[in-house]
């Protein structure tokens, strides 16, 4: 895809800029937050100053197609990658971080400027009713209208998009330790924060353990900027 190629070069240029003029980038107008202390620009996933990949998946609960570009100019976004059968607590920990940000968005009055976008990489099992039940369990507020579980149209489509656009390699593992699960997806917990202009402000690659109040505070700074 041409778009992706051009993104790569933008990302590369961003990395050079970061190295060349640290401290200036934060004031360049593309991002609200300064670059993180640890430079993640070489990581496979998007990081500070990169364009958020433009992807479109369905929100099966609302029955609509959602593109990340739909929110540009309107909403800051928190994205993560998960599946409801995730057996070890990593995914609920990721969802908890987005959910807490959603709670604070309601308390502080920026519901309309926020979007929470957990993308499943298990569309075969994560159907609308399953996702709806999961939302109930995890305390997610679907009524707020700012939470969209996103479901690729097929496992393969999701796998390709998530790897190519977000640098997350997803694979079904059949010989899992969990006898009640046919397959699992070993993965690390990535959370991405993007501003209203669709530029990544933060990547949290240890997203399931990263401090909740820090994510919430980062999000609040970005959404209220």
């Amino acid at each position: 895809m041409n778009r992706r190629d051009s993104l790569r070069s933008i990302a590369a240029a961003g990395a050079v800029a970061t190295a060349g003029c640290l401290g200036v980038l934060g004031g360049s107008g593309r991002t609200v937050l300064d670059p993180p202390e640890q430079d993640l620009s070489a990581a496979a996933h998007p990081s500070h100053g990169d364009e958020l990949p433009a992807v479109e998946f369905s929100d099966p609960i609302a029955g609509e197609e959602i593109a990340t570009s739909d929110f540009e100019g309107e909403r800051a976004m928190l994205l993560t990658f998960f599946y409801t059968n995730c057996p070890d607590g990593v995914c609920p920990a990721l969802i908890l971080r987005l959910r807490r940000a959603q709670e604070v968005a309601a308390e502080e009055g920026y519901i309309e400027n926020s979007a929470f976008l957990p993308i499943t990489f298990d569309p075969e099992r994560d159907t609308a009713p399953v996702l709806e039940e999961y939302a109930t369990q995890q305390g997610v507020n679907l009524e707020a209208g700012n939470w969209h579980f996103l479901r690729p149209e097929s496992y393969e489509a999701g796998q390709t998009a998530i790897e190519e656009e977000f640098g997350l390699k997803i694979e079904k593992v059949y010989d899992s330790d969990y006898e009640n699960l046919e397959y699992t997806f070993p993965h690390y917990g990535l959370i991405l924060l993007a501003n209203k202009q669709g530029v990544v402000e933060r990547a949290y690659p240890s997203g399931s353990t990263v401090d909740i109040e820090r994510i919430v505070a980062d999000f609040e700074r970005v959404v209220t900027a």
Binding site: P36, Q38, P186, P205, V210
Partner: peptide, 16 residues
């Protein structure tokens, strides 16, 4: 305690 933390050893520029 994080068996699926593959590749997650780095961190997002966390102030540490």
């Amino acid at each position: 305690a994080t068996p699926t933390g593959i590749g997650g050893s780095d961190d997002a520029g966390d102030p540490t």
